[in-house]
């Protein structure tokens, strides 16, 4: 009885169960040790810049940027005259290839842009070559494929509407 009361008071004061607190303390202890091990080589300032910089870059720059692009694309598509195919929304046929092509660009940016050339030459004995061309070709194929699927869906919608 007394125990339950104590637990209740802990929950009210802390906001969650004691297990929640214990779990966080263990995790923070391990994380602090690991961060100390990295910092002993890289320096704490650089480490904080790296971790915090990436969170800020993702949450406050990258994500708002692609959301904004999406909104702009939807607005632009909405201004187009609505065709017979209006029942097949076109936006996702732009989103899908744009998303995949964009992801490839992010993942392989050092190769596509040629920024990694110096390191790549030391490692492989060759210059970076063809990555920009390959990425562009894959992107063209993705957009064409998506357009083709869109055309098939529109055609099917039109045929179904007639029946």
């Amino acid at each position: 009885m007394r125990r339950a009361w104590g637990l209740g008071r802990f929950r009210r004061r802390y906001g969650a169960s004691p297990l929640h607190l214990a779990g966080h303390l263990v995790v923070f202890a391990i994380a602090a040790f690991a961060i100390d091990r990295i910092a002993s080589g890289a320096g704490l300032a650089k480490l904080i810049v790296l971790y915090a910089g990436l969170v800020i870059a993702h949450d406050l720059i990258f994500l708002p940027a692609y959301s904004g692009l999406d909104r702009a694309a939807r607005a632009a598509l909405a201004r187009l005259p609505a065709p017979q195919s209006a029942r097949v929304p076109v936006i996702n046929h732009v989103r899908a290839p744009a998303l995949i092509s964009g992801l490839l660009l992010i993942i392989y940016a050092p190769l596509i842009s040629g920024k990694a050339d110096a390191g790549y030459l030391q490692a492989s004995g060759h210059h970076l070559e063809g990555y920009l061309r390959n990425w562009l070709m894959i992107s063209v194929v993705l957009f064409l494929g998506s357009g083709l699927i869109y055309a098939v869906r529109v055609r099917r919608a039109v045929v179904n509407a007639r029946v």
Binding site: G41, A42, K46, L50, Y108, P110, L111, K115, A116, G119, Y120, Q122, A123, S124
Partner: peptide, 10 residues
């Protein structure tokens, strides 16, 4: 994996 090391960390 892309032999790119702009961060200056090990």
């Amino acid at each position: 994996i892309e032999d790119y090391s702009p961060l200056g960390v090990n």
